[in-house]
C-alpha cells in the first residue's frame, strides 16, 4: 500500500515540476517586462530587476497609445463578429452538406493561414486600390479596410472551432424539433445555436487575439488615425526605447489575463476547449 502511495506521490511531484517548468517558460518574459516597468530610472532600456520602485512611467503613457489600444479593441471585437458571421455558416455547410470537392473547399477556407502576413498586407493594399478604382470607395487606412483583412486572417479559426463542435452534434435533436412543427430558423436558433455556442465563443476569442496581435498587416493597411496597438509599439521600439511601453504592456498582460478569466466565468473554458478538438 505504501509503495503505491509513494508512486502516486512521485507522479504528482513529476506532474507538478513539469507544469512549473512550462509556466516559468511562458511567464518569465512577462514577469521581466512587468518588473522592469516599475523601474524608476531615467532610462532608455530595460532594467530588471528594477533598481528603484516607481510608477512614474505609468503616469507618462501618452494618450495616443490609449487611443490605439482602444482602436485595437474595437477592431478585434468587430473582426470577431465578422469572423463569426462568415465562419459559422461556412462550418455548418462544411460539416453537414455532402458535395463533391468538399475537401478542396475546406482547403480554400484554411488557405489564409498559409499566407505569410506580410504578403497578406501587401496584397490587400493592392486589392483595395483595385476595388477603389472600380467602385470609387477606397478603404485603405480605414477601419473597414482593417476589419476586412483581419477577418480574412481570423475566419479559418472560427470555422475550425465551430466545425469541431458540429462534428459531435447529435442531429436527432434538430429532427425532433422539426417534426414537432418548429420552423427551420426557429430550430436553428433554439436548438442548434445554443449547442454550437461554445465553438462560436472559442472562435471569436481566437479571432480577437489574431487581430489584436497582428503587426505586418496593420503596417500596410493602417493610417495616421488608424494604427492598431501592436503596430504602434513595433514602431516605438524601432526608434528609441520608451519605458512607457513597458508600462502599457503591463496593462495588456493583466488585461489579457482578466479577459480570459471573464470569458471563462461567462462561458466556461471547459466548453471552449471542447470545441477545439479538431478540424
Amino acid at each position: 500500500m505504501n509503495g503505491h502511495r509513494a508512486i502516486a506521490n512521485a507522479r504528482k511531484a513529476a506532474s507538478g515540476i513539469w507544469m512549473l517548468g512550462v509556466f516559468v517558460f511562458l511567464f518569465a518574459p512577462l514577469v521581466v517586462v512587468v518588473g522592469a516597468s516599475f523601474d524608476g530610472g531615467e532610462r532608455t532600456f530595460l532594467n530588471f530587476p528594477p533598481k528603484e520602485l516607481s510608477f512614474r512611467w505609468y503616469g507618462r503613457i501618452s494618450p495616443d497609445l490609449f487611443e490605439s489600444l482602444g482602436l485595437s479593441i474595437v477592431l478585434g471585437l468587430t473582426t470577431a463578429a465578422v469572423g463569426c458571421l462568415v465562419g459559422v455558416p461556412a462550418a455548418l455547410g462544411l460539416v453537414r452538406a455532402r458535395f463533391p470537392g468538399k475537401s478542396l473547399v475546406a482547403a480554400a477556407f484554411r488557405a489564409p493561414l498559409q499566407i505569410p502576413a506580410v504578403v497578406t498586407g501587401v496584397s490587400f493594399l493592392k486589392l483595395y486600390y483595385l476595388i477603389g478604382d472600380v467602385t470609387g470607395i477606397y478603404v485603405v487606412g480605414t477601419l473597414p479596410g482593417l476589419v476586412i483583412a483581419h477577418s480574412f486572417l481570423a475566419t479559418p479559426y472560427v470555422i475550425g472551432t465551430v466545425s469541431a463542435v458540429l462534428q459531435r452534434f447529435n442531429t436527432r435533436l434538430e429532427e425532433a424539433a422539426l417534426s414537432l412543427g418548429a420552423s427551420r430558423w426557429r430550430t436553428f436558433r433554439r436548438v442548434t445555436l445554443p449547442v454550437i455556442m461554445p465553438g462560436v465563443y472559442a472562435g471569436a476569442m481566437y479571432a480577437f487575439l489574431v487581430s489584436f496581435g497582428d503587426v505586418p498587416v496593420a503596417l500596410f493597411l493602417g493610417s495616421s488615425g488608424m494604427q492598431p496597438f501592436a503596430a504602434k509599439i513595433f514602431h516605438l521600439m524601432e526608434f528609441d526605447f520608451d519605458p512607457t511601453l513597458l508600462a502599457i504592456s503591463t496593462f495588456i498582460i493583466f488585461g489579457s489575463l482578466a479577459a480570459i478569466y471573464l470569458l471563462q466565468r461567462a462561458v466556461g473554458l471547459e466548453e471552449l476547449s471542447r470545441s477545439g478538438g479538431g478540424n
Binding site: M19, F23, V215, A230, I252
Partner: peptide, 19 residues
Amino acid sequence: LLAAIIAASFITIVIKVLG
C-alpha cells in the same frame, strides 16, 4: 491554469522579445 497558458501565449511577441 489553462486560461493562464492561453493568455500568456497570445501576448504579442513584440512585448515578450524585450523580456
